[in-house]
Simulated scan of single mutants.
Amino acid sequence: MTAILILGAAVWRDGPSPTLRRRTLHGAALFHGGRGTIVIACGGLGRFPPTEAEAMSAILQDANVPPKAIRLEDTSTNTVENIRNAIPLLQGETDVLIVSDAYHLPRARLIARREGLRVTTSAPPLNGARLWPQVKGWLREIPGVIAVLLRIR
């Protein structure tokens, strides 16, 4: 079994952020393409309810992912917690396909490997994504990757 692990993004006052929606729909497409047998939606409660995982579950179900294939990791607040808290939901499996934005995947891959998982990654297309948040994401991840490599995080 390969699990598709979708890493969280913000839920806004009026619903899922475009980033959360883009990641989740990409995860659904990967599921329908046979790339995984379960989908783990990751993310706890941010500024606005519901949790990121609950918002992703609704999007996944609207995209015809069967509820029995969806598992929720709904307590995490960062990437390390996303991955660590998802491990029990894998029920002993170690193969994961992590879905997040391209700027986030190198650090997520390092963290997941450090946790003993066999990792592949996939980023959604940037259709409609604004340039500046993507640039900020890449810049923010540079020290994050260094911290993971130095085992600070």
Rank of each mutant, 00 (worst) to 15 (best):
M1H: 07
M1I: 12
T2I: 13
A3Y: 04
I4T: 02
I4N: 05
L5V: 07
L5S: 11
L7I: 08
A10S: 14
A10M: 12
A10Q: 14
V11G: 02
W12R: 15
R13S: 15
R13K: 15
D14I: 09
D14E: 10
G15M: 03
P16L: 12
P18Q: 04
T19R: 12
R21M: 08
R21P: 00
R21N: 00
R22L: 05
R22P: 00
R22W: 01
R23G: 07
H26T: 10
A28N: 05
L30K: 13
L30W: 06
G33C: 04
G33N: 07
G33I: 00
G34D: 06
G34T: 08
R35S: 03
G36M: 05
G36S: 04
T37I: 03
T37N: 04
T37H: 02
I38C: 00
V39H: 04
A41E: 13
C42E: 08
C42N: 11
C42K: 01
G43W: 03
G44Q: 03
L45C: 09
G46H: 13
G46S: 13
G46Q: 13
G46K: 09
R47S: 14
R47W: 12
F48G: 12
F48M: 10
P50D: 01
E52Q: 11
A53H: 00
A53I: 06
E54G: 00
E54A: 00
E54W: 01
D62T: 12
A63H: 01
A63R: 01
A63Q: 02
N64G: 06
N64M: 10
V65H: 02
P67A: 15
P67R: 15
K68H: 05
A69E: 11
I70S: 01
E73Q: 04
S76W: 08
T77W: 00
N78C: 10
I83V: 06
I83R: 03
R84W: 13
N85T: 07
A86M: 09
A86I: 07
L89D: 08
L90A: 02
G92C: 14
E93F: 03
D95H: 15
D95T: 05
V96G: 05
L97Y: 07
L97G: 10
I98P: 05
I98L: 12
D101Y: 04
D101E: 08
A102P: 12
Y103F: 13
H104Q: 12
P106S: 03
P106H: 03
R107N: 11
L110V: 04
I111W: 09
I111C: 15
I111A: 10
A112D: 00
A112V: 06
A112M: 02
R113P: 14
R114V: 02
E115G: 08
E115F: 06
E115K: 08
E115C: 10
G116K: 09
G116I: 10
L117F: 05
R118F: 08
V119H: 05
T120M: 01
A123M: 02
N127F: 09
N127C: 11
G128V: 10
G128M: 13
A129G: 00
R130C: 11
R130V: 14
P133Q: 11
Q134K: 15
Q134I: 15
K136H: 12
W138C: 12
W138G: 14
W138D: 13
R140W: 06
R140H: 08
I142M: 04
G144L: 00
V145P: 11
I146E: 15
I146C: 10
A147E: 13
A147T: 11
L149C: 14
R151E: 10
I152C: 05
I152A: 09
R153I: 02
R153A: 07
R153W: 03
